[in-house]
Design a protein around this nucleic acid. Structure first.
Lengths: 217, 217
DNA sequence: ACGGGCTTACTAACCAGTTAGTAAGTGTGG
DNA sequence: CCACACTTACTAACTGGTTAGTAAGCCCGT
């Protein structure tokens, strides 16, 4: 908790890397490794090599491979949200704009998308350490997106059948994940941002019964 | 699940299984194993144990783990198509009915869905032996579905913007894969068949500009 | 100011377990 | 007899994790 502020920056000397800095390096490396090889296949040796230390050094910082994975996932969330100005997730149509914007950004961050895709796929295997994280993530997204759908519905005086908002939310989440998969395997065949916008607009239009358009920032 | 149900046929003597029969057993076992643990994490020992032999026995039949995977994928295709009465993939609206029907069947074949999901996710890792298979599969589906979309468009006298059929096809494929993922992680949260029908209808309705309905045969 | 005590960051060596794959031998049905 | 299915026994490579030891930096009493 109460660390002295002086230890953080102040001296830009490149002596021994500070703990915080080193950890960040390792997290970035782990993201790359898990992204390109998966969690099971990506080894601590791989991660360590990328920051120029041994695998024992990585364990010194993170304790175990499982814990490292956890922090990688949190790290991804942190990075993901930090570009968001408002600092909190928007609602209504803004949420969907945000999703499309994220897709556009993702098209230039193949590594992160790959890590997410691989981990999500792997997570459906028995007893995978990331499965609850992924499930939780889906649940949260489902809640936020379905709420945004309901917002749009009331905004446009549309009465939604029971469970329709959730169905739409599930479809939106599904389409985003699925498109990422296709894009990773064949970037030529899919324009990630455009395809995402198209798909989300389709779902919203069909759900609300009137055309919905998402501006292309 | 019965471990060696097939090996001990009748009372007389333990007949030696024919090569073809044994191979089929192994393929089924491998599908289960790769489905529940993934390709990398699922070992030949696991597969062998399920048919009551050693892992060397499996290698005797398939030569290597990679070759086994290939045959598993082919096997899945064979099984997948054989329930199709017409023996060839339908077009137009029938294709989408077929997709929803497949989703409904899949809800009772968790193992296969899981195998497909895990393998697809894993396939985006560097140099994965299944990546070209998955990419190919996507390409074929994209072709068939976009053609079906174009069929529907001409059928309803709708002029589609350039590339719109492909976008719709990509969205349909994506939504199916994504929903499977969500369903695997939390079957309560998603009604696979219903969600698939809803999502496909949404995309088609938005694409064609008029309501599209898929019967629930 | 400086030397000792303590913490941090790491390495080298090793562990036990698991992997795919190979080679040689065994039993059996035809 | 003998081809084939299969086992036993093994190897070489790796895995995540533990250990002891070391070098470097920080804090503090004198």
């Amino acid at each position: 908790m109460g660390m002295s502020e002086a230890t953080e920056q102040a001296a830009p000397k490149a002596k021994r890397p500070t703990r915080a800095h080193r950890r960040e390096e390792i997290l970035a490396a782990a993201t790359r490794v898990f992204g390109s090889k998966g969690y099971h296949q990506g080894s601590l040796v791989d991660v360590a090599a990328q920051v120029g230390i041994t695998h024992a050094g990585v364990l010194h910082h993170f304790g175990s491979k499982d814990k490292l994975l956890w922090e990688v996932l949190e790290y991804r969330d942190r990075v993901d949200v930090q570009h968001l100005e408002g600092k909190h997730i928007p609602g209504g149509l803004d949420l969907f704009r945000h999703l499309v914007t994220t897709a556009r950004l993702n098209a230039d961050r193949r590594g992160i998308v790959q890590a997410y895709a691989v981990l999500t796929g792997e997570s459906v295997t028995d007893g995978h350490p990331a499965s609850s994280w992924v499930a939780q993530r889906f649940a949260v997204l489902r809640g936020e997106i379905s709420q945004a759908v309901r917002d749009l519905a009331t905004e446009r005086d549309v009465r939604l059948p029971d469970g329709e908002a959730e169905r739409a939310a599930n479809a939106v989440i599904a389409v985003m994940d699925g498109l990422q998969l296709q894009w990773l395997l064949d970037p030529e065949a899919v324009d990630l941002a455009e395809a995402t916008r198209f798909a989300i607009e389709s779902v919203l239009t069909a759900t609300l019964g009137s055309p919905v358009q998402i501006a292309s920032a």
